[in-house]
């Protein structure tokens, strides 16, 4: 009898490979999920509220009602992701039990544990986690994350933090590639990561898993900017369904991610998109209301 292996890291990280060059869109109901699928999304993130509303409403943000998620899973054929709170492994168990395709252990929700993340190796379902720099990214991979994204600053429509985080990861990898071998032990200690994983990253010249941009992407050019900075794909949260014409904007951002290096096409797909989401400058947000600094 031939061995059939499920839930392996190959299968988990391989799924993220299939999402590359694509756009993952936040949706709050089955109708929005259908619009996202029609627009060419490679996956949807099922939520109760988009990050802009979570930010406006305040209070504790938790996992979405499984009934809402199941309604979305029923409606579309593309993969469906959902968020659990950082460290809330029981929310993750519930999401796995309903058959979700990917779990985002997300700083957008209120953390359940300010010290520990979910031990993601225990799950058959793959996880994506946010990061602000290389150390954070590799710590999440050590815990079992099969995909990484920038944290950015969700719900703002301001891309500046996503740019900062993507550049931080890429700069650290460039530095790592040029680092003499005898400095790697100290670098691993400084980053709080294992030497083996650091060496592997150095050898590959990139994160060992797929790395998406997220947090503040609102326009086709924002998406293409992140791709040119080295993102493998893009999450768009509030940017689509908080805009004037979500279907058109979603469709344009999908094209912008494919043709991220072609300014003529980017000009075309940026035309007549209607109102973008109302942004908040990430700089104007008081320190204690920032999402990206949660659980590092």
């Amino acid at each position: 009898m031939v061995d059939v292996l499920t839930g392996t890291f190959t299968v988990k990280s391989g799924h993220a490979q299939m999402l590359k060059g694509g756009v993952i869109m936040d949706v709050v109901n089955a109708e929005q999920a259908k619009i996202a699928e029609e627009a060419g999304a490679v996956a949807v993130m099922a939520l109760e509220r988009v990050p802009a509303d979570i930010r406006a409403d305040g209070g504790v943000a938790r996992m979405t009602d499984p009934a809402v998620i199941l309604g979305i899973m029923d409606r579309v054929s593309i993969p469906v992701m959902a968020k659990c709170r950082i460290g809330h492994f029981v929310e993750a168990q519930v999401l796995e039990a309903i058959g979700i395709d990917y779990i985002d252990e997300s700083e957008v929700l209120t953390p359940a544990d300010e010290v520990h993340h979910v031990w993601k190796h225990d799950f058959q379902v793959p996880f994506v986690c946010g990061c602000r720099d290389l150390g954070e990214a590799l710590r999440r991979i050590s815990e079992g994350a099969a995909m990484i994204r920038t944290k950015g600053e969700a719900g703002t429509g301001d891309v500046v933090e996503a740019v900062r985080h993507m550049r931080a990861v890429q700069d650290a990898i460039r530095k790592l590639r040029n680092m003499p071998e005898d400095e790697l032990v100290v670098e691993a200690r400084n980053l709080g990561v294992s030497l083996d994983l650091l060496q592997q990253t150095r050898e590959m010249g990139r994160l060992p898993v797929v790395n998406f941009a997220a947090g503040g992407v609102a326009t086709p050019t924002d998406a293409a900017l992140m791709m040119q900075l080295g993102a493998d794909g893009v999450f768009v949260g509030s940017g689509i369904f908080k805009s004037g014409d979500p279907a058109q904007r979603g469709y344009s951002i999908v094209q912008a991610v494919t043709h991220y290096n072609d300014p003529k096409i980017l000009a075309d797909v940026s035309k007549d998109l209607g109102e973008p989401m109302v942004g908040i400058s990430a700089r104007s947000i008081p320190e204690e209301q920032l999402l990206a600094t949660r659980s590092i």
Binding site: H15, S77, G99
Partner: peptide, 15 residues
């Protein structure tokens, strides 16, 4: 047939 084996948790490796 698309997604013939189910969802992501049903993805697998085999010789």
């Amino acid at each position: 047939r698309r997604n013939a084996f189910g969802r992501q948790i049903d993805s697998f490796e085999q010789d």
